[in-house]
Design a protein around this nucleic acid. Sequence first.
DNA 1: CTAACGATTCGCT
DNA 2: GCGAATCGTTAGT
Length: 199
Amino acid sequence: MNPLPLSYYQHPDVVHLAKDLLGKILCTQIDGKLTTGIITETEAYCGRNDKACHANNNKRTARTEIMFQQGGHAYVYLCYGIHNLFNITTNVDGLADAILIRAIEPFKGIETMLDRRGKVKPDKTLTAGPGCLSKALGIDRRLYGSPLNSPFIWIEDSDRTIMASEITTTTRIGVEYAEEDALLPWRFYLNSSTYVSKR
DNA sequence: CTAACGATTCGCT
DNA sequence: GCGAATCGTTAGT
């Protein structure tokens, strides 16, 4: 276990971090089982001036509270009453930014992921999609607020260097309600990966 | 207390 | 392509 330092998440530009996280390794150890995957798709959400963000306009509620703490924590919430969506909080204390992880490419613990997902073969349906990857990695709301250097969930750097030309930049998914902010180019994915969610 | 609504996924057509 | 599933969060009565 060699987690990124928590200082990494204090960066003031959530859009920069959303891109920088591509290629890094998301790791969990839940129920004693290690599962890891390469981050292939992310979306940035900003707590100020972004109608798609739960904490927009500095809206502070029990659910969004963790986003207002200093960056480097897990923000996990239930979507549609069914899916646990995993986000990484960023920025300094008081500024509520977060990055939604939308897809990973399975790396270690693939048997465990298949088991959790009720599948027999690893293909993109295993971990492409925010609800899918959470289920595969065993992430649920019990991890809400966990620091990203905990023994249960963390992110590691990789040797791989990601070139700007390897990244596709586009609009976020499922945020039509955000009106003009739905047009912000704040979704990023590795264009070489098959593990990317639909559009 | 009540009601409306999702940062989605899956199965069926 | 379409619609159901399913429940915590939120805002309003």
